[in-house]
Amino acid sequence: MNDQKKTVLELKDIQVSFNNNIVLDKINLSVKENDFLMIIGPNGGGKTTLLKVILGLIKPDKGTINVFGKNPKEGRSLIGYLPQYSVFDRNFPINVFNVVLTARYNGFKRYSKEDKNIVIDVLKSVGMLDYKDRQISNLSGGELQRVLLARALARKPKLLLLDEPTVSIDVKTQISFYKFLLKVREKMTIIIVTHDIGFVYSYIDTIACLNQRLYYHGPKTGGLSEIKKMYGIPVELILHDTPYRILGEHK
């Protein structure tokens, strides 16, 4: 069945280095339509770099990338991107509505009525419409995260890239965040990168582990022991809703 799906993203032999330090090495990844992929790895393992390669923000030293059959700079118009939230100045003088509206940029022309309606719709879908006139410093971490998700969705993307989406929010909000993604995934492919492996949810199709090299496992129960190898410490993985151990007790 998987074979009938179109390939959305394809990375072949990607290598990236900064100042002669190899950050990503021999990365091969193929993601299909409506996949829900979680890439986990330790801090400094190259997760954000990988997303930036996909977005065409970082040019790899070697290898090829295909985003919707195009190069990243052309293909990224179909990508919705949720960056790590720490990159923001929370005091920036902008309200929620205008944050999301920036995503509707489409060349020199002014934002249309339709753009504004789309913003209203996505804010409603993430439950933040009542906050639309708030300045962003008056939002909690979870609220800001939902606003940034709305901004990513306002592009009407076919591929959603989420960088550490749950790092700054509490567990309860994390659960509702993932439940929301479950609804969204019917319309698009989702890739999450995170170092936070406390929760891996049952509806994530595939897990890949990234620490300079990428270990792509396909079905999620496949090679979770790789995680242990990569982190170098015993790791417990808990499934959504009914927590139980996938891996055997580490001794």
């Binding site: 065409g56 923000l57 990224r76 118009s77 902008i94 205008n98 944050v99 920036t102 940029y105 002014r110």
Partner: peptide, 19 residues
């Protein structure tokens, strides 16, 4: 105005969306 607002707020996101 809208381009300057966008790049001042989040330059990286602005690049991604084609500004």
């Amino acid at each position: 105005y809208k381009e300057f607002l966008s790049i001042s707020f989040d330059e990286e996101f602005s690049t991604v969306i084609g500004i």
